[in-house]
Amino acid sequence: MRVLVVEDEPGIVSGLQTNLRRFGWAVDAAADIKTAWAALRSEPFDVMLLDLGLPDGDGTELLRRLRSASRQGLPDPGLPVLIMTARDDVASRIGGLDAGADDYVSKPFDAGEVAARMRAMRRRSVGRADAVLSHGDLRLDPAALTVCLAGQPVDLSSREFAVLLALVEASPRVLSRSQLETKLYNWDRAVDSNAIEVHIHRIRRKLGEQVIRTIRGVGYFVPSVSE
């Protein structure tokens, strides 16, 4: 999952990056509205965490701009948004939700709760109700980072889990190497040219060669259950 954190307090950003990257998520940060808007125009994100008190304006300004983004040429005006706010008055929370936020959390917050709310928003955005993702004999639990194949647990690294989850969620669509890299690696992370291939190889070694298939020169896909 690719996450954009819009927050100007370095300590909060650092804590979120440390905690969310444990799930294999790529976490980028923007300290103001201008930087965040440029990021949204150039990169596909799965979730945005948005502070309201930013140096160049109120976070709801960015949120309103995003929700009308179909007129701005952006790919995803429906991007799930979680507001992070130190404002404890009801009016501020109502204003954020009415501006288009999907959920909010009050500062100080628990990073585990933030991650859980993000997973819930992500499930809703892809039309999935169950917290555990089932696909044929596969069972993936994004909260616990666990995988079972035919009822047997399989040990995957957080990166391997992230690759498999992205492909299962997209099934049977094909994801290119660059699309998978975008979901796994943030701006400041150097990516080895064969990193995705290495992850795919390791997943196949643990789950079987047919779990993930390759279309040469195009990308990778997990077949639909009916295949």
Score class of each variant (00 low, 15 high):
residue 70 S to C: 00
residue 103 D to F: 05
residue 116 A to I: 10
residue 213 R to K: 15
residue 60 T to L: 04
residue 22 R to W: 06
residue 95 G to L: 01
residue 37 W to D: 08
residue 110 D to F: 00
residue 10 P to M: 08
residue 62 L to I: 09
residue 14 S to T: 08
residue 160 E to R: 08
residue 68 S to Q: 11
residue 82 L to F: 03
residue 218 V to D: 00
residue 88 D to S: 14
residue 224 S to Q: 12
residue 52 L to W: 04
residue 86 A to S: 15
residue 180 L to Y: 11
residue 18 T to N: 08
residue 186 N to E: 13
residue 117 R to L: 12
residue 67 R to G: 03
residue 148 C to H: 15
residue 170 A to S: 15
residue 44 P to R: 12
residue 152 Q to W: 01
residue 19 N to W: 12
residue 172 P to W: 07
residue 169 E to N: 14
residue 101 A to Q: 02
residue 208 G to V: 06
residue 105 V to C: 03
residue 41 R to P: 00
residue 145 L to R: 14
residue 173 R to Y: 06
residue 23 F to G: 12
residue 56 D to R: 02
residue 102 D to F: 00
residue 205 R to K: 13
residue 222 V to E: 05
residue 139 R to M: 15
residue 22 R to Y: 04
residue 120 A to K: 12
residue 143 A to H: 09
residue 145 L to P: 02
residue 85 T to Q: 10
residue 44 P to F: 01
residue 116 A to E: 14
residue 164 L to S: 04
residue 139 R to E: 15
residue 196 I to S: 11
residue 156 L to M: 09
residue 226 S to M: 08
residue 69 A to K: 00
residue 110 D to I: 10
residue 205 R to L: 11
residue 101 A to K: 00
residue 221 F to R: 09
residue 40 L to E: 01
residue 87 R to W: 10
residue 112 G to L: 05
residue 74 L to E: 12
residue 30 A to W: 08
residue 182 T to M: 06
residue 218 V to G: 03
residue 53 G to K: 08
residue 37 W to C: 03
residue 8 D to N: 15
residue 19 N to L: 05
residue 209 E to M: 05
residue 163 V to P: 03
residue 157 S to T: 15
residue 172 P to H: 07
residue 44 P to Y: 03
residue 143 A to N: 10
residue 172 P to I: 13
residue 21 R to Y: 01
residue 142 P to T: 08
residue 102 D to P: 04
residue 26 A to Q: 05
residue 79 L to A: 04
residue 183 K to T: 03
residue 227 E to V: 13
residue 158 S to Y: 02
residue 198 V to F: 02
residue 34 K to Q: 10
